[in-house]
Design a protein around this nucleic acid. Structure first.
Length: 108
DNA sequence: CTAATGACGTCCG
DNA sequence: TCGGACGCCATTA
């Protein structure tokens, strides 16, 4: 069993639809800790492969791909473009257009 | 109990 | 506008 907070983060990430993205801070807030972005990072590191998580739909607050490692960074970019998410010349995604807004409000 | 981790966010010069 | 310092915090060791 996963810890409660971890479980909520996982559930939220799994609900991000194709062609949309969410930021770390946004996910953390919906899970109950608006400043828990770093937990989301840890979760992606430890559970992305085991839980069928669409990790590529998670980007930082600026709309950039957060990962530094080149291989995975390009992979993520391709995955997003394949879903119709256009990434600008500076590596920026237009959050106004692609950010996923769940109907459920943040509980904290 | 403390220390470390981490693909972040925000403030300030 | 940009980069660096610092804050943050659930979870694990």
């Amino acid at each position: 069993m996963l810890q409660p907070y971890t479980q909520r983060v996982v559930d939220i990430i799994k609900k991000i639809p194709e062609g949309k993205v969410m930021t770390y801070g946004q996910i953390a807030g919906l899970a109950g800790s608006s400043r828990g972005a770093r937990q989301v990072v840890r979760i992606l590191h430890s559970l992305s492969s085991a839980h069928q998580l669409p990790w590529h739909r998670v980007v930082n607050a600026k709309g950039e791909i957060a990962i530094q490692e080149d291989e995975s960074r390009m992979l993520q970019r391709h995955m997003l473009e394949a879903e119709g998410v256009y990434i600008g010349i500076n590596g920026m995604i237009d959050l106004e257009e692609y950010r996923h807004e769940p109907d459920i409000p943040p509980d904290r």
